[in-house]
């Protein structure tokens, strides 16, 4: 094994290993969610193949779990797609923010890499890009492992889920809530962010009780944006 001197460009293998190591906690955290998703989806009549297909093609945990919650017979296709786009509208901004940092990569790598872009690896890629040049091995390499991880565990969940029974018994349904709390906490670095989160929570709860799903997602998003505009101050935002 040849150790590269610290100043020279890192090898693709070490970049890939960096990416996988940094993503490892998120992959472990995604495991119960994927198992839960597969188990609940199987309970709603989806085959393990359909579950794996949805995880592979959609690859958006929050939207997938929301869709499975809404999954009834007959399937409310329009409502599910609307909810999916609302929940994933954030990817427009996340992708836009990351786009200039992957401009040096070939088009196929950008197209594939952005398909496997999720909250966790987006946050890591942004952090990485702030410190050094984002490499294909780090971004797409680790993203691919993240994708395989999600598809595999959700497929397994669809197989073992029906054998275990109600995932609520193990509090597995709340893992989804907890991971979102953890992700939100990662965004909240100033008091203004707290105001945004409180406004969103209040509006979403109210609208959920009056109009139901998926409108609470839209209401929370707009309330949070409105609050961000209200509490905005011109001085440069230097996080404490």
């Amino acid at each position: 094994m040849t150790e590269a001197p610290p100043d020279s460009a890192a090898s693709p293998l070490s970049e890939w290993r960096d990416g996988v190591a940094e993503l490892a906690p998120a992959m472990i955290a995604a495991m119960p969610l994927a198992l839960l998703y597969g188990a609940v989806a199987a309970g709603k009549g989806l085959s393990p193949f359909a579950v794996a297909l949805s995880s592979g093609l959609v690859f958006a945990g929050g939207a997938q779990l929301a869709a499975i919650e809404m999954w009834t017979s007959p399937v409310p296709i329009a409502g599910i797609i609307l909810s999916t786009v609302l929940i994933n509208a954030r990817y427009v901004l996340m992708a836009a923010s990351l786009a200039p940092k992957v401009g040096h990569m070939p088009l196929w790598a950008r197209l594939l890499g952005f398909h496997v872009l999720a909250d966790e690896n987006w946050a890591l890629a942004e952090r990485r890009a702030a410190a050094r040049r984002l490499t294909l091995a780090y971004f797409l390499g680790a993203g691919a492992v993240f994708w395989v991880n999600w598809v595999f565990w959700s497929w397994l969940g669809a197989i073992v889920g029906p054998l275990i029974g109600d995932p609520r018994r193990f509090g597995a349904d709340f893992a989804f809530t907890a991971i979102f709390i953890g992700l939100v906490a990662g965004f909240v670095t100033t008091r203004r962010h707290v105001a945004v989160v409180v406004a969103s929570a209040a509006a979403a709860t109210l609208v959920h009780q009056t109009f139901g799903s998926p409108w609470h997602v839209l209401a929370g998003a707009f309330a949070g944006m409105a609050m961000a505009v209200i509490v905005w101050r011109p001085e440069p935002e230097t996080a404490a």
Binding site: R90, V184, A221, A228
Partner: peptide, 12 residues
Amino acid sequence: AIPPAVLTAVIA
């Protein structure tokens, strides 16, 4: 504000 607001709204 969109990412934290949407994530919050989903679980609220």
